[in-house]
């Protein structure tokens, strides 16, 4: 309980610093925000008026507090490009990214479980060695190149309908495969390693000695223990999925928040950049905290030891 509270405080502190960091980012980015908001051809008077209205003439500390207050209320600012609240822009694109991340996570979990158990069950076998090389190769494949090869094979050669756009479930198959393969391969390696460690543990010899069959010992005794580090890692990867979505959405022309971030950078739409960044950072920090919590739930030792 105490450890959980400490973790929650830690998470809150990281989010607070993320807010400060993004505020500084906004300060350091080239260009005067008031002039950017006023648009080209605005007179000096208009810019000065806008600066006063936006509170940009206030001391930095006051601006920071206001910035933090707005963010905590869920106000991510107004997009320079569209003039709409960044929150609405994100909300319009979020379903695509969330669906992509969910589908990729499903692919990743399947790959991780299948590959990890197959390799971990017989760590010295030929299958395990082949799988490990395959996993390393997948990790070395740049996600956007993998995406392009998939488009080449499935759309160009096999004539599947062109992909992308609205991001309905059917259209997400290839992007999710490209994005999830990475997560799956990385997690499969961790699962295989921890499974092969678990197979050497004393409790497994006990289970076998008591007459449990090999597969029962593997699936009921070794796997639940071996899953703990893999599940923790998998949840940490949740954030990586959002980062990787930037490239995947670009390749597959999906209109999600990753692509929104890239186009916002290209258009120097700084409020949008900072808004999306804050949003992703908050998601990642929370998902890491969730991973920690989950690990505590799964592993009685961590609960007793720290609590």
């Amino acid at each position: 309980m105490k450890a959980g509270l400490a973790r929650a405080l830690d998470t809150a502190a990281v989010i607070a610093w993320v807010i400060v960091a993004t505020f500084l980012l906004l300060q350091w980015l080239p260009g005067d925000p008031a002039e950017l908001y006023a648009g080209e051809g605005a007179t000096g008077e208009e810019v000065a008026l806008l600066r006063e209205r936006l509170g940009l003439d206030q001391p930095l500390a006051v601006q920071l507090l206001r910035h933090a207050g707005r963010l905590l209320r869920g106000d991510l600012g107004v997009s320079l490009r569209s003039g709409r609240p960044v929150r609405d822009e994100i909300a319009a694109r979020l379903p695509v990214t969330l669906r992509l991340a969910a589908a990729a996570a499903a692919v990743g979990a399947a790959v991780a479980l299948g590959g990890g158990v197959a390799a971990g069950a017989d760590p010295s076998g030929r299958l395990a060695r082949v799988l490990d090389w395959v996993n390393l190769s997948i990790l070395a494949l740049p996600v956007y190149w993998l995406g392009m090869i998939m488009i080449l094979v499935f759309t160009v050669r096999l004539g599947w309908p062109a992909l992308g756009g609205a991001g309905r479930w059917g259209e997400l198959f290839l992007p999710a495969l490209a994005l999830g393969a990475h997560t799956g391969a990385a997690t499969a390696r961790i699962l295989a390693a921890s499974l092969s460690d678990a197979l050497g543990a004393a409790y497994l010899r006990t289970a076998l000695g008591k007459g449990a069959s090999g597969s029962r010992a593997l699936l009921r005794h070794a796997l639940p223990n071996a899953l703990i580090p893999a599940v923790t890692y998998f949840f940490m990867e949740g954030g990586r999925l959002l980062g990787g979505a930037v490239l995947t959405e670009t390749v597959f022309a999906l209109n999600g928040i990753g692509r929104y971030l890239v186009t916002s950078i290209a258009f120097r739409d700084y409020p949008a950049v900072v808004g999306v960044t804050c949003f992703i950072a908050a998601c990642v920090t929370l998902s890491n905290a969730a991973a920690d919590l989950l690990c505590r739930c799964l592993d009685p030792r961590a609960r007793r030891g720290k609590g």
Binding site: L25, G243, G244, V273, V284
Partner: peptide, 24 residues
């Protein structure tokens, strides 16, 4: 450690992307 934690809140490629956007 806190500073590193804050950097790690920007997952993986996103950190490189932001740094590149900031630096040009």
């Amino acid at each position: 450690s806190r500073a590193v934690d804050v950097l790690m809140a920007f997952p993986d490629f996103l950190l490189a992307l932001l740094a590149a956007a900031l630096l040009g």
